[in-house]
Design a protein around this nucleic acid. Structure first.
Lengths: 257, 257
DNA sequence: TTTCCGGCTATCGTATGACTTTATCGCAGA
DNA sequence: TCTGCGATAAAGTCATACGATAGCCGGAAA
């Protein structure tokens, strides 16, 4: 699946050779083409795909090992790890999922995580935000409003909006979860691209969240963020199901507020 | 800081040479001894620390790159990355934090994350748990009860208890956060080791959480889990402050329920 | 025929040296 | 002063070799 990539600058330089090899292998594992079995024998892979030296191959494997996608043990070989070992919240691992087929369960799970976390983050942001945080969130919102829906600048604004709120929470481990939120936004973008109404309808919600954060009203910010996430989930899932022609699988979540 | 290590089997084999080098460098970065500056030049490090080949060194760097701890660019060198690039939720990165000095802010942040996430996870677990999940949670609880406090088996039981609840949530990305919970438990263990009362007092709380999950009462499970997390935070922070002889920094969080 | 032991071999880990690529920095020329 | 080109330094890549280890298989003994 080819698409525009707005994910944060990853640690893994795609220009480099080992990065390409890592991505190749990662996608093969994530898409299930390798699935907990043995990896392609060292030599085979070298000869077959691209003639790549053992160094590049090993460094790619090291990257995948660090992200939990493979387990290498002397002699028994380098095998794809079971899914529950993967660092599913790692930026690169999330990005690689976009290269594989979209998996509705996975998207739901990410939205679920987001639904639990992001309202709390918004609450913290409202309590702890500095003037600089406000300026950053405002700038992101401006980019969303001033640019046509789904334009690059607009999408970047959306991502920046959520990231800025995470940053305002002043909690470093929590900020690591922003990549998961970014991922859901990207999935939304892919799945419901072209549907401008949903995006435009969400703009006032974004503005209201900012307002609550400005007012330092944590509870209000949390409630509004929860609403935004649920709306996003519903429109995204609707697009998934429409595009898959399975409208019966639409399961909306009602606002509790 | 030397300690018993109960973290889940990490992907990064400490027997291997590159793993040791990676840990060495990681601790130097996390502890701040390197802090966003340049890394030791390749050759220097080789000669100085241990005579280690370029291969092992490079693979160690690749691992750290994958976890966001360093950024390598041709010409400008391999630099330690700013903290907001680190994968703070990565199992290894969390484990490496135990080798550096304890950082109260970091522990607070982890507990905060846990406070947001774990009650929701408990709710999901109550809604989705299977019979196998119940058995797993019960077994973990048994290990906590049947073994003396802070014994290896007991601690493992505690970790298994929380991991089993995460597993019962049936949400893979969410499960990745269990390593952060494990980390807070380990910090608690380190900081308040020897204080048996707090542990024994928490046993009924654990039992009640299990009961709520058995009864499929999601809200109750969430409330009880929230209480457990807050209690754990308070006793842990108290130990931190006592051990640092700064009792004025104790800031308890009141139960809302 | 079954079982156990030991060597064989495949595969990862480590070491070494040479060459390539890339990006920075400084010097020279306009 | 500005521009651009080349020297340079560091990471990246390649090729090769050797060591260590765990599984495999065959032979020997019961």
């Amino acid at each position: 699946m080819r698409m525009r990539d707005f994910s944060r600058p990853t640690t893994l330089n795609p220009d480099r050779l080992f990065g390409q090899v890592a991505q190749r292998l990662a996608v093969a594992i994530i898409s299930g083409r390798i699935g907990a079995g043995e990896l392609l024998p060292n030599e085979d892979d070298l000869r077959a795909d691209i003639s790549v030296s053992r160094t590049a191959y090993r460094e790619a494997v090291k990257v995948l090992t660090a992200k939990g996608l493979v387990e290498a043990r002397p002699k028994s070989g380098t095998r794809a790890a079971p899914r529950d070992r993967w660092n599913l919240l790692d930026t690169d691992v999330l990005a690689w999922h976009f290269e594989a087929d979209p998996n509705e369960k996975f998207i739901r799970d990410l939205f679920e995580l987001r639904r639990f976390v992001e309202p709390s983050v918004a609450r913290l942001a409202a309590q702890r935000r500095t003037a600089a945080d406000i300026a950053r969130i405002e700038a992101a919102l401006r980019a969303m409003i001033d640019n046509p829906p789904y334009s690059d600048a607009c999408v970047r604004g959306d991502l920046a909006f959520h990231e800025a709120i995470f940053a305002a929470s002043q909690n470093a481990p929590l900020q690591c979860l922003s990549s998961a939120v970014i991922a859901t936004l990207q999935w939304s973008l892919v799945l419901k691209k072209g549907v401008d109404e949903a995006f435009i309808a969400s703009l006032p919600d974004h503005e209201n969240i900012l307002a609550a954060i400005v007012e330092r009203d944590g509870d209000l910010a949390a409630v509004r963020m929860a609403g935004l996430v649920i709306d996003s989930l519903n429109t995204t899932l609707a697009s998934v199901n429409v595009s898959q022609a399975e409208p019966d699988k639409i399961t909306r979540i009602k606002h509790t507020k």
